[in-house]
Design a protein around this nucleic acid. Structure first.
Lengths: 212, 212
DNA sequence: CCTATAAATGACTAACGGTCACATAAATCC
DNA sequence: GGATTTATGTGACCGTTAGTCATTTATAGG
């Protein structure tokens, strides 16, 4: 991901892409290490072994870095759903793939309220279009595997997205260590909270589909 | 909401409650005026005609102020649902009440990712319990109006909450003025986005209920 | 009126995202 | 291969804002 040993500046497009990749990877590392609220541009710069100014040659803001990570993760999710889902496993795959794609849930949980609020219009629009397209691809999978009519599949796909967004929120609170949390609230603070809640929604939504 | 004319300090519990109310109201005013991202503690203090330090006598952080506003709004929402819903109008009421209760959607959209992230454990736990209770009250309404068995009503209520959280996210992007936004993306940026998306979800979820 | 209590103040600090004048690596030219 | 040009990279600096705390003073009680 880094530049060749004896090169300090990225001049060609390939080199720029490599540097951008290194910066994104450094961002991932920092999220892993410090948690989502702990990341700072200084720390990312240090991890990527560049100066802070350089970060701003490759992303207009901290949030555009995070948006780029989200777009990556979202593409992985949809690609995996297309590849892995069968008629028998559709519901399971729709739940498990988002739950297990690295960084997808924490990024989705913060997409609207945190990330998109400081992104310029152009990348924002581009991301919105991409999300719409992803929704369509999921609708196609639903049509292919259930035989439902396209308009129903589209409505189901949009509703799935809604529920997934809602369920992803609980990822923010999820803690590895539940000590200090009252017994009766444990279910709300476990890592499994997303899967538990979203499973129910997925099954309800898919159950409403009819064959065309 | 303010203290009596010639009193500058709140000594009794009543006076403290009044001051707290004034601070919360000032926060509402500032959100209205500057938008959610534009609010600052300095501005709230000025609007409430107290010093910044005083704010911290009544709330441990900016986010605890916002959490208090959310709890208020949430209580209004559930109370209105209980009061207004009938067997015929249940779906409509479940959509319209959240959509029309002041500040409810913007606060819900930011509840997990923005507000709760800077709230001490105790108020956080209290809020979680309150939300769980609200969910139970909605489940009761569903039982009463549809005759569905309690466990089904509970699952439906939890799923409704999920979908509502997801749908509320779109409120963050909603703009009054759509100029500058590409035609094809207009639906995603309108104020009606919440109602449009959530209606579908509510009807799907309620349709799955059976009479006991 | 005097004293004790605690509510209120606001200058100050720390932290962080973002900027920009300047330094210099690397490509290009002769 | 030296000179010139281009634009990448740098990091000290800035503005903003949440939050703190030593100090002030309104109010209650004696």
């Amino acid at each position: 991901m880094a530049l060749p040993e004896n090169r300090k500046r990225a001049r060609s497009d390939d080199e720029k892409e490599a540097r951008r990749g290194a910066i994104l990877q450094a961002t991932r590392v920092m999220i892993e290490a410090k948690g989502f609220e702990g990341i700072t541009m200084n720390a990312i710069a240090q991890e990527a072994a560049v100066s802070k100014g350089t970060l701003y040659l490759y992303a207009a803001s901290k949030e555009e870095l995070l948006l780029a990570l989200f777009v990556d993760a979202m593409e992985q999710v949809v690609a995996r759903i297309e590849a892995e889902a069968t008629a028998d496993t559709l519901a399971d795959v729709l739940v498990q793939v988002p739950a297990t794609t690295p960084l997808f849930l924490p990024l989705l949980a913060r997409l609207f309220a945190v990330i998109e609020k400081n992104v310029a219009d152009e990348p924002l629009f581009e991301n919105k279009r991409k999300m719409r397209d992803m929704g369509m691809r999921v609708a196609s999978v639903i049509v292919r595997l259930t035989g439902a009519p396209l308009d129903q599949a589209r409505a189901a796909s949009m509703t799935l997205m809604l529920a997934m967004r809602g369920a992803a929120q609980s990822d923010v609170l999820a803690r590895r260590d539940l000590t200090g949390i009252p017994e009766d609230l444990h279910p709300m603070f476990t890592k499994e909270n997303f899967v538990t809640g979203y499973s129910v929604a997925v099954r309800m939504i898919l159950a409403g589909l009819t064959r065309s």
